[in-house]
Design a binder for these strands. Structure first.
Lengths: 245, 245
DNA sequence: TTAATAGTGTCTTTCAGACAATATTAT
DNA sequence: ATAATATTGTCTGAAAGACACTATTAA
């Protein structure tokens, strides 16, 4: 916009980054999925100092790219997930969160339908889906980042159609209910949930089709739905556990 | 945790930050208040390149401090606000958002009660409270950051007691209603709003006192309340403008 | 006196949740 | 047949919003 001037040159010189304490910026991804009815998070095992041998969230340094692109790239490097919902979570920048140097980490949250293991082989350095109750004592401040991601996921299920990101393109109401049950850690009333989901405009669309077979232990075949076009759920689905304050 | 070893030394050397393209990290603060019934944002006028003469959000480089501390320091440098609600908003890191170099900006959101101008004098380089409709064409990507802050503020009024951060320690229900009206840009029904606020547990506490005088154009003296201890409002106050999708 | 505002009462509609009933399918 | 599940129906209580009413105060 402005032509370079003498004062501008001086000014740019004063912004020599070497004059500042060096800072690095990373992205770390909290990738969640549901396997066997339980919430899992994608973790890698660190082979390097610091925290060698400890599990950590997948992540890495930001290159010449946007932050969103960096998060998507890091996720793609660890596992091949198809269509993934990805959103920025929060940024963690305590001066001592990384013992090597000042590292600012921009955390992302990702949701994906259940998929086979990233690598069926036993290479321990690859990323793995870990059940939530085993995802403790992570490297750096990743316990805190994971907790923030979980809280965000739980809250967003209430007022957005995010649950549809955990299931395939076509799904039954029961599958959707199991997403809520797994993420919230509560049982939901099947009848009321069913009616509620269908009553929220734009949450799901009827495909007209139904499952080929009934449930494993009996029951009729269920209708199949696809995600609707709503961005917000009105009225929202509220957690029973929060109703009483 | 781990003792330095030969391999660790090698490893640390490989993390020499000079091996990476230099990155700077800043905080920018979207500070909101309500003056004369209208929402205002704190802006500074840039005296330096780039965007010299354009208005911008107050902010600056992160020093040896946490991100929260950096945001609070930048805010204190521009204006003396008493107790301020401050929360992280989002991080903006497009590679070309600053023409000088790669700058990652961690944006914060601040809410404060109405206060006199930061500097009554006419020093144009000081920060000023600007009405929202005049806060356009800001430097860098600050239009986008401001928009994100507004959307966050509007959403959080619904399900948190954030509105109490815009008023003094003691306030009337009408003052609280004016906060909602200013931030949401809609009129609220006085009677229903009154009953609703008092019915949400922990939103406000009765002080037992009342205003000294009635309103400017008449009316009884109003009871005074203080903020309650609720962190979340249940049930929430929902925007009428969103009810119909 | 008149107008404006604080605070309360009432009614209707919507919605969440408890519970029940029916239909369909695996075993 | 029996059990499990999908889907729908019904009822109750909570809550939102429209509207009206009373009391209090400034001008």
């Amino acid at each position: 916009m402005l032509r370079p001037s003498e004062s501008e040159k001086d000014f740019l010189a004063s912004y020599d980054p070497r004059a500042y304490a060096p800072v690095a910026v990373t992205v770390d991804v909290v990738a969640l999925t549901i396997r066997d009815g339980a919430l899992h998070v994608l973790l890698v095992e660190r082979g390097e100092h610091p925290f060698a041998g400890r599990r950590a969230l997948p992540g890495g340094f930001v290159r010449d790219e946007t932050l969103d692109e960096a998060a998507r790239r890091e996720l793609a490097e660890e596992t091949s997930m198809g269509k993934v919902h990805l959103e920025q979570l929060a940024t963690f920048g305590d001066p001592r969160r990384d013992p090597r140097m000042r590292v600012i980490s921009v955390a992302y949250l990702a949701f994906a339908p259940s998929l086979p293991d990233p690598r069926a082989g036993g290479d321990v350095s690859e990323a793995q889906w870990i059940p939530l109750n085993e995802a403790v004592d992570l490297a750096f401040d990743h316990d805190e980042i994971l907790a923030a991601g979980l809280e965000r996921a739980r809250a967003k299920l209430e007022y957005t159609p995010l649950a549809t990101a955990f299931v395939g393109p076509e799904f039954t109401i029961a599958e959707l209910r199991n997403v809520y049950a797994a993420v919230w850690g509560e049982q939901l009333h099947p009848g009321n949930f069913h009616r509620k989901v269908l009553s929220v405009p734009g949450f799901v669309e009827d495909t007209g089709a139904a499952t080929e077979k009934g449930g494993e232990r009996g029951g009729p075949r269920a209708r199949l739905y696809r995600a609707g076009n709503a961005q917000l759920l009105h009225p929202a689905l509220l957690r029973a556990s929060l109703r009483g304050r």
